[in-house]
């Protein structure tokens, strides 16, 4: 499987690491109570279908980026920053 890095282009999946759900807004630094952080850190949907997520080209240029991935087929859209 290949993943499109916005900087390097198509590369083998083994050069990347997964970085979690990118659809959730991280509370701004220094704000948010324990509940807000708890919900951000622990509560996730587990959709079958399109999922917005972070990936890092960790064995390449080290760019972090956001893609939409179909969790059923691994089809990926995006590679926008």
């Amino acid at each position: 499987m290949k993943i499109t890095c916005p900087h390097c282009g198509d590369r083998d999946w083994s050069e990347f690491r997964y970085g979690g759900d990118a659809s959730k807004a991280r509370p701004r630094h220094g704000t948010g109570d324990a509940k807000a952080w708890h919900d951000y850190y622990f509560l996730f949907d587990n959709p079958k279908g399109m999922h917005t997520e972070y990936w890092q080209h960790v064995l390449g240029c080290r760019q972090w980026f956001v893609v939409k991935r179909n969790t059923a087929t691994n089809e990926m859209i995006g590679g926008g920053e």
């Binding site: 690491r17 991280r26 630094h29 890092q56």
Partner: peptide, 12 residues
């Protein structure tokens, strides 16, 4: 290293 990059590139 990856964590620092994540914070700088994705959030801060």
């Amino acid at each position: 290293m990856s964590w620092l990059e994540y914070l700088l590139q994705c959030h801060w």
